[in-house]
């Protein structure tokens, strides 16, 4: 499976990914429409892009009381089926990474669906911080990638 990986040593919080994703979702540049969120934490000097990690055992999927979250077998993406979503926000509470957001216009939860295998955020990441990469063991890899992502944060913190 391929994942969007995030290199915190390359992200500059230029927000091209946010605008690209927002455009894909709504045709506009409203940041709140984006499924990827990037923040510069000035006090700790961290550039942190965050989007769904498509967990192997996705708790959001398991606890969705509307069965509105499914796994796309082709891309491995954990997706929200908007037509089924009731807007209860249980998935937002379930996600430990804060990667599910709420669409206040349609009153449904929104998250990354890997753009069916061609993520727009990656295509518009001008720094190379975001990559869409193939890996053999999806489960292990999912964790490893996040681990690396985290290690790089720790590096910055300890410097």
């Amino acid at each position: 499976m391929r994942f969007i990986t995030m290199d915190v040593k390359k992200c500059v919080v230029c927000r091209n990914c946010e605008y690209a994703c927002a455009f894909r979702q709504s045709g506009n540049f409203r940041r709140e429409d984006s499924n990827i969120r990037v923040e510069y934490h000035n006090d700790v000097k961290i550039c942190l892009p965050q989007t769904c990690l498509h967990c192997e055992d996705a708790w959001c999927l398991e606890i969705c009381p509307a069965a509105a979250i499914v796994k796309d077998e082709d891309t491995g993406a954990i997706e929200i089926v908007s037509e089924r979503c009731i807007g209860c926000k249980m998935c937002m509470l379930a996600c430990p990474f804060g990667n599910i957001h709420f669409d206040k216009i349609n009153m449904v939860s929104r998250k990354c669906n890997l753009c069916k295998g061609d993520p727009n955020c990656v295509a518009h990441c001008i720094s190379g911080a975001l990559q869409y990469t193939t890996v053999q063991d999806s489960c292990l890899n999912n964790r490893e990638i996040f681990h690396r992502f985290i290690e790089s944060i720790l590096d910055i913190n300890t410097e």
Partner: peptide, 19 residues
């Protein structure tokens, strides 16, 4: 004061446990 930043830092520790 900067709750989000604290969260960002602590994701790391969470994930160590997770992995």
């Amino acid at each position: 004061r900067n709750l989000k930043a604290i969260m960002a830092q602590n994701i790391s520790r969470h994930h160590k446990a997770f992995s």
